[in-house]
């Protein structure tokens, strides 16, 4: 019995969410007194042995270039076979885009009980109960997995990465890889920007900013903070900002350390996408804006006056530190 942790990579680089699942999986393995092992697929350029510092003793690597794009069907077969070969009974994914495509297929293949969107370590004192977010972050469910094989996908940004000491041994795993039926013809990465779901800080704007021509103050603030940018749904719908920036119940769900909402009223559907943020700051000229009820810090004021000052103050803080 062991815990197998799927290490997600893109263009050869291990994703930040993978460090979270490594930490989480290793912690779970030590809680159960079993080994934690990783698995990485495709061509990698990062030093994967160094990932041992997150608590895994061994990392299986299937270095076939047919795995350089994620095809859920092909990935699931390889991961399920690796799980069988290594005697893993618990398989951990990040609940990121890759995990959403692959974890469910792996679970079905192994007839494993699946908890998708976990947010805490399982309680293994009496059975195997995993806490997950439900109702778009408005509540949690404690889900009991009753099957011998278990698959968990962990919400990004919900478990703190801890790096210790150690190097993992790399086990080159030879598994036959099917040719993907899905042919990738183009990859369009938004360059120069921090992916929204990976960002520590997100600066977000709503209809209160009046029009796309006013986004400069928000972009300046984001740049100063090294933050990703987001927006409310009407802003995305009106094409003031690209559609992939829209957060909320029907958009991207995020859980950064800091979420700064500027000129956003805080409708319940918006909150559903951001309420897992650790710290929420609201800047809105209406003291009655519902967002203040969900906020940790707030300024009742005009964004056009407050935001440039905020950028200037952060610049000062950075200069002083």
């Amino acid at each position: 019995m062991s815990v197998l942790i799927f290490i997600d990579q893109a263009d050869g680089h291990v994703k930040k969410s993978s460090l979270e699942v490594l930490t989480y999986g290793a912690k779970l393995a030590s809680q159960l007194g079993v080994a934690a092992e990783g698995i990485v697929l495709g061509t990698v350029s990062d030093d994967i042995a160094a990932l041992g510092k997150y608590g895994v003793s061994k990392i299986h690597h299937v270095s076939n270039n047919l795995l350089d794009h994620v095809d859920a069907q092909v990935y699931a077969k390889v991961i399920a076979e690796a799980a069988n070969a290594s005697g893993a009974s618990i398989i951990i994914f990040s609940h990121n885009q890759t995990g959403k495509a692959v974890a469910a297929r792996v679970a079905a293949r192994l007839k494993a009980g699946l908890v998708a969107g976990a947010c805490a370590l399982p309680d293994t004192t009496n059975g195997f109960v995993v806490k997950k977010t439900v109702f778009s972050g408005k509540a949690f469910a404690n889900v009991s997995i009753n099957a011998p094989i278990k698959v968990i996908s962990l919400n990004p940004n919900s478990y703190t990465t801890i790096a210790g000491e150690g190097t993992a041994t790399i086990n080159a795993l030879h598994i036959a890889v099917d040719t993907p039926k899905v042919k990738v013809t183009a990859v369009n990465k938004v360059t120069g920007e921090i992916p929204l779901t990976e960002a520590d800080i997100v600066v977000s704007g709503g209809r209160g900013l009046k029009g796309p021509e006013n986004w400069g103050i928000l972009l300046d603030l984001a740049k100063e903070l090294g933050a990703a940018t987001a927006c409310s749904r009407p802003v995305g719908d009106a094409h003031w900002r690209p559609h992939h920036e829209h957060v909320g119940q029907t958009g991207v769900q995020i859980a950064p350390n800091l979420y700064i909402a500027i000129g956003i009223s805080g409708a319940i559907q918006h909150l559903a996408g951001v309420n897992r943020s650790k710290v929420i700051v609201v800047i809105n000229k209406d003291p009655e804006a519902p967002f203040f009820k969900a906020a940790d810090y707030g300024i009742v004021g005009d964004a056009f006056e407050v935001v440039p000052q905020l950028t200037a103050e952060i610049k000062k803080l950075k200069a002083a530190n």
Binding site: K111, A112, G113, L114, V115, V129, K131, V134, G137, K138, A139, F140, A141, N142, V143, S144, I145, N146, A147, N275, V282, F292, K293, A294, A295, D296, Y297, G298, I299, V300
Partner: peptide
């Protein structure tokens, strides 16, 4: 293969600090 044992609501926010 799974069942929901119970639900929980997140702890209430302490309240906003206005500046």
């Amino acid at each position: 293969l799974t069942n929901i044992v119970s639900f929980e609501l997140p702890p209430a926010k302490a309240g906003v600090k206005l500046v």
